[in-house]
Design a protein around this nucleic acid. Sequence first.
DNA 1: ATGGTGGGGATCCCA
Length: 259
Amino acid sequence: MKIASFNINGIKARLPALMDWLDEAQPDVAILQEIKSIDENFPREAFEDKGYNVETHGQKSFNGVALLSKLPLEDVTHGLPGDADDEQARYIEATVVGDHAVRICGLYLPNGNPVPGPKYDYKLAWMDRLRTRAEELLADEMPFLMAGDYNIIPQPEDAARPQDWVDDALFRPESREAWRKIVNLGLTEAFRARNQASEHYTFWDFQRGAWQRNDGIRIDHFLLSPECADLLTDCQIDKDVRGREKPSDHVPIWVELAA
DNA sequence: ATGGTGGGGATCCCA
């Protein structure tokens, strides 16, 4: 089973590019972030025509996540537990049943800039809630993965110019510590498990010719539970998507599971 | 130190 994650930065602007990539990559499941659309305006028929089941958790203008799956999406839940007052649409879960049942958690983790400030406080609090949710799922012992735009640069080798990010919410020590607290529950970071070399990125800013200079960062990640990591056979980044017509600033990352 | 680009949707916010 091929499961991909892609921050599309606006479904309306990205629909043609997203369709082309789906045709070519043929993921069984696609986890989308930043749909920037309310549920009612999401072009679900375009995906249903390709054989995908569609679940969205959207809001007006900002954020928004979605799941596309060729297999049925079961037990869908919207929103990250732990704060009833949180109105930002950044999290969705569903179970996909192939040879194994896998719980799919799609997330768009807050950016957090500027540091310090309320947006950074929200990011760290959100990561605390995500860790709590991971603990709950680990207790269930069903295979699960948490995938999406984490807005976290885990290590210096995950940025072309790490010195540019030392004061940024994506790379601050507190952010990386919160990331490690989640990973160290016993989750496997799929890309690092399958690829040792540096200079692999998933995001290049629209500004300053970042793509042309390969000034990228690796901030889109898959975290796998132990039972899910046992099924992992591959993890790759579709880098070339960034060089196409009307690209997102992110590119897809995907895992192959023996599930 | 500044502003560079892009999406959404409203004349500014977010990244």
